[in-house]
Simulated assay, not measured.
Amino acid sequence: MAKPAEKPLALVTGVGPGTGAAVVRRFAEGGYRVAMLARDADRLAALAAEIPDTIAIPCDVTDPAALDAALAKVGDPEVVVHNAVGGAFGSFRDVDPAVLEKNFQVNVMALLHLARKVTPAMEAAGKGALIVTGNTSALRGKAHFAAFAPTKAAQRILAESLARDLGPRGVHVAYLVIDAVIDVPWTRQRFPEAPDDFFIAPADIAGEVFHLAHQPRSAWTFLTEVRPFRETW
């Protein structure tokens, strides 16, 4: 009897209770083993107990050695979703410059290190996808996002450089701009009077991530934007 083929591996960084967990669920439902990376070990353990074929790996993505150790545990992923994010609110007068530097490490440098580690195997296989989740700050800098928007804009440009380099080699890189308030408990508390359709559902974001990772080669997308139908843009 033929041995059943092993499920492909997806790796998701920044697995929190919103988008990250939803992406993990979508890929597990889609037939993948999913390696989950985040700093909160307890949260990852709870998700691993809930979602079949998942692997919990506590990891600080800004630490290249920790990324090496994480990948050594799981092998070469066919799909990588960089969802980890460092953010802060404040004008350039108010923010601690160290916060901007820290956010740059999470949003930009972690993506660079991740790409350098995972894409050589994808390139050798002639297939693979690296999907980066972004937001409106990747496209514009508002006054109170001085420690955040510059890092997301840099992240988008880095992802574009990766896409132009890796696309002709068979590796799909895409950047997903989430122009919306994500439906998680803390945003519900911040906007207590908002109707349900004010928010974007994490499961719907995850569906778009999964779609991007499986686009046919004749119609690859680099930059995609998603927003609720009522969102002003």
Rank of each mutant, 00 (worst) to 15 (best):
R190D: 12
R217K: 13
A2E: 11
A28Q: 07
T133R: 00
V99D: 03
P202R: 13
D196W: 10
V34Y: 10
P185S: 02
V171L: 05
P202L: 09
P120F: 02
D197R: 04
I182N: 01
A163W: 09
A153H: 00
H211R: 14
P64T: 12
D204C: 08
H214Q: 10
K142V: 15
A2K: 12
R43F: 12
K7S: 07
T13F: 06
N83G: 06
E123G: 00
G87T: 14
L47C: 06
A174V: 00
F145S: 13
V24W: 09
A163N: 11
T62C: 00
I200E: 04
A129I: 01
H172N: 05
E6S: 12
H113L: 00
G126D: 03
G170M: 04
H214T: 13
T224F: 11
A201W: 04
A35Y: 07
L212N: 00
T136M: 13
I131A: 02
F27C: 05
R33G: 01
P4M: 12
S161F: 03
L176A: 02
A146N: 09
P185Y: 10
L114W: 03
A147M: 05
N83M: 08
P52Y: 15
P195S: 12
V80D: 01
L139Q: 04
L100I: 14
E6I: 13
L158P: 04
V79I: 08
L212M: 05
G14N: 10
G18V: 11
A21L: 10
A69R: 11
R156V: 03
E208I: 03
H82R: 03
G134W: 00
T221R: 11
L44K: 07
R25N: 08
V99I: 12
A203L: 09
G20K: 07
K73W: 11
R156A: 08
F229S: 12
P52Q: 07
I178Y: 04
V181T: 11
V80K: 05
A121M: 05
R39P: 01
R26G: 02
F89K: 11
F222R: 01
V108T: 02
H211K: 13
R227F: 03
L37W: 04
K7W: 07
A147V: 07
S218V: 11
R93E: 14
P52C: 11
A46F: 04
D197E: 13
A22Y: 10
M1F: 14
